[in-house]
């Protein structure tokens, strides 16, 4: 499967979550908080904490740890 993460094409495997792909790519945070701009990545890993949000195919507020990648997905994050 081919997906793009922040515009960069990459490979993904079936069953891989968006968070799995980001972590595998060495990213530990990809979002910042609203008030103090603190970095956030995965915390709970099972869809409970809403720390790990990304934009998938133009739709914001998707939990990266819950969302499985599918071929052609365009993932956008907020930061480093």
């Amino acid at each position: 499967m081919r997906v793009t993460i922040d515009g960069v094409p990459s490979q993904a495997t079936p069953g891989q979550t968006v968070a799995g792909a980001l972590l595998a790519a060495g990213r530990t945070s990809w979002r910042t908080t609203r008030v103090k701009s603190r970095p956030r990545g995965v915390f709970c890993g099972i869809g409970v904490c809403f720390d790990c949000l990304v934009t998938v195919n133009g739709v914001a507020d998707v939990r990266a740890c819950q969302r499985l990648l599918v071929d052609g997905d365009d993932i956008r994050t907020e930061g480093p």
């Binding site: 530990t28 603190r38 970095p39 956030r40 995965v42 709970c44 890993g45 099972i46």
Partner: peptide
């Protein structure tokens, strides 16, 4: 809340 701090369950699930 620093990145790199996970729940035990997250470590397990990942």
């Amino acid at each position: 809340d620093l990145p790199g701090v996970y729940t035990a369950g997250a470590a397990q699930a990942l």
